[in-house]
């Protein structure tokens, strides 16, 4: 079991190509923890913006009558991948992990697998 800080550190350290990560509460849009990022890449802005992404997707699924849960969301930019993974269980409801990857260095399949593992061991 890892706490927020260790989980974020592990994400940044062990996932190849990771440049930033955040744990975000999408009921409020605020980040519980952030790591990495830069002056030009504010993870708190990303937290608020991606909260809207998740809320829109959840609403769309309700409209479509889909009963399934979102596991993760992948956003592909020309030079980055953004991975969003929703937390399940253990009081993690309403939270998501957000991971920024450098597309040149990252292995997407491996990153997704590792993020899943980090999410499973995360205790909030």
């Amino acid at each position: 079991m890892a706490n927020t800080e260790t989980a974020l550190k592990e994400a940044l350290a062990s996932i190849e190509g990771a440049t930033g990560a955040a744990l975000v509460d999408y009921t409020s849009g605020m980040a519980l923890g952030t790591i990495g990022g830069s002056k030009t890449f504010d993870l708190n802005v990303a937290a608020a913006g991606n909260t809207d992404v998740i809320r829109a997707k959840i609403r769309t699924m309700e409209h479509l009558g889909l009963k399934a849960e979102i596991e993760d969301i992948l956003i592909t930019l020309t030079d980055q991948y953004h991975l969003i993974r929703l937390l399940t269980g253990r009081g993690g409801n309403g939270l998501f992990l957000y991971l920024v990857l450098d597309a040149k260095r990252a292995n997407l399949a491996m990153a997704r697998h590792q993020l899943k593992r980090i999410e499973e061991s995360l205790e909030v």
Binding site: V24, S28, G29, M30, A31, N44, V45, A47, A48, G49, T51, D52, R55
Partner: peptide
């Protein structure tokens, strides 16, 4: 409301 966005 998205409080994060509200603050920003």
């Amino acid at each position: 409301v998205n409080v994060g966005r509200l603050h920003l």
